[in-house]
Design a protein around this nucleic acid. Structure first.
Lengths: 150, 150
DNA sequence: CGGTATCCTATAAGATACTG
DNA sequence: CAGTATCTTATAGGATACCG
């Protein structure tokens, strides 16, 4: 087995993020957790994901510190676990929102339920955008990705 | 000749977006295109991606309308192609930014080049955030994903 | 140099059986 | 019910040969 030196891209934070969070089910699982669906069977049912996959994804996410396994027990039952977002997991909601926004605009579905992003205080519909340090949205054509250091 | 069509089972826009844009190399390719690296060999060299994969990803992205193949020719050479982002491709930069921001915060690398997002007019460092209709950033804990219709 | 075609491997995904 | 283990399939990824 040749282990070649990792190319520059491997060391890039985009790639590490996409490797962990870009798996097909992962954003959907995070969304369920965020909306309060935090138990194995509930997640499985809502998403229709195979149970082995859900096990694997939750384990990966827990190992990466994105999800926290939290024990609970109901009367007479053994200890089980709920899965809660950590701070890192909550930060990942921006990726989710960005994916969803893009999908809605450029790969729209043909009917059925839609999910919107809203401000729970005002009810306003939310976008995902680049923002400056004052929290103002910046137009896309003003955005530059610049390489620093090395 | 893969014309990757999204199966009918993908009723969710997050899933469709992640299927197309969540492939490991795709965000990196889009980033290169955005920064002006638009020719096959240049992209290949910067990313260290295998040529067959780059061919496949560019074809998929072109078929999805995210990338436009634009012919050019240099003196005495045959026609070749540059790959440019379409509007849909530019919209995907938000996903890129979100992935990168998350990676920087929660899966940071240990030295080497970093890529920042800046306002090219002011030089300000940019975040990716949820924003309200007035373009103001909204704190993460005010964001709700709500299911409508269905 | 700018790609495409071929072959191989690694892994995600799916179905389903199984265990406490 | 809440998972884990096993098996199969589909596909992304990688190396490299090849062709204009």
């Amino acid at each position: 087995m040749t282990t070649t030196e990792l190319p520059d891209s491997m060391t890039c934070s985009i790639e590490r993020a996409v490797t962990l969070l870009g798996e097909r089910w992962t954003p959907l699982i995070l969304r369920e957790l965020h909306t309060g669906v935090v138990r194995f069977g509930d997640i499985q049912q809502r998403l229709g994901i195979a149970t082995n996959l859900l096990t694997a994804r939750l384990a990966t996410l827990a190992a990466a510190g994105v999800v926290e396994k939290r024990p609970y027990r109901e009367a007479g039952a053994r200890t089980r676990y709920e899965y809660h977002l950590t701070d890192a997991g909550r930060d990942a909601l921006v990726i989710l929102g960005a994916l969803q926004q893009w999908g809605d605009r450029h790969a729209p579905r043909l009917g059925g339920p839609t999910i919107e992003r809203r401000d729970r205080r005002t009810g306003a519909l939310l976008d995902v955008s680049f923002t400056d340090p004052e929290g103002r949205a910046v137009p896309l054509d003003a955005v530059a990705f610049v390489r620093t250091g090395g």
